[in-house]
C-alpha cells in the first residue's frame, strides 16, 4: 500500500491487510511517537490526524487510508525543527509526567485548535475527553492549550 505520512509517500508491505495504522507507523515506518495503549480506541495514546481530524490509529486499517493525509507527532514541528506552538506550549508548561500519552494529547489539541482558534474551557474539556492521561496532568494540559491559543488563564 501507499501511505502519505507527514507529507511524504511511503510504500509499505504488510503481512495482513487489516493491519491498523498504529502498527504500520510503529513497526514498519519506525515512527514510534504514536503510542500503543489499549488497542480499542479508549485511551487516545495512538491519536494522529487523518485529513486534519483527530483519529485513533489503533482502530483504523492502514489499507483504507491510501490517498488520505496522515499526520503524526513526528510531522508537527517545522522542517527546520521549530516546534509547533502546541508542542512549544507543552514544553513551556512542563506538562508531562511519564509523558506516554502526550503525543496523542498534543495531536488531539492541535486538531481542536485548527477547528476552534479560541475554545472555551468546556470546549477544551470535551474535545480532549478522548485522550486519557494516567498521570493526571489535565490541569497543565488545559494551561498549555490556552497558551497555544493565546487565551489568558482563568483564575
Amino acid at each position: 500500500m501507499r501511505l502519505n505520512v507527514n507529507g511524504q509517500d511511503h510504500e509499505v508491505d504488510v503481512v495482513h491487510d487489516d493491519t491498523p495504522l498504529l502498527w504500520v507507523l510503529r513497526d514498519h515506518l519506525g515512527m514510534v511517537g504514536t503510542k500503543f495503549g489499549c488497542g480499542i480506541g479508549m485511551c487516545g495514546a495512538c491519536t494522529v490526524h487523518i485529513d486534519g481530524q483527530a483519529a485513533f490509529s489503533c482502530s483504523v486499517r492502514a489499507a483504507d487510508l491510501e490517498g488520505r493525509a496522515i499526520t503524526t507527532i513526528e510531522g508537527l514541528a517545522a522542517a527546520d525543527g521549530t516546534l509547533h506552538r502546541v508542542q512549544q506550549a507543552w514544553a513551556d508548561q512542563d506538562v508531562a509526567q511519564c509523558g506516554y500519552c502526550q503525543s496523542g494529547q498534543i495531536m488531539r489539541a492541535t486538531a481542536l485548535l485548527e477547528k476552534h482558534a479560541k475554545p472555551t474551557r468546556q470546549e477544551i474539556d470535551e474535545a480532549m475527553a478522548g485522550s486519557v492521561c494516567r498521570c493526571g496532568t489535565y490541569n497543565r494540559i488545559r494551561l498549555a492549550i490556552e497558551d497555544a491559543a493565546g487565551i489568558s488563564h482563568e483564575a
Binding site: V32, G33, E74, A77, L83, Q88, W90, D92, A96
Partner: peptide
C-alpha cells in the same frame, strides 16, 4: 522543565 520535554513533545 523536564529534561526530556523536547523529545517527548516531538515523539
Amino acid at each position: 522543565g523536564g529534561v526530556d520535554n523536547t523529545p517527548l513533545v516531538t515523539g
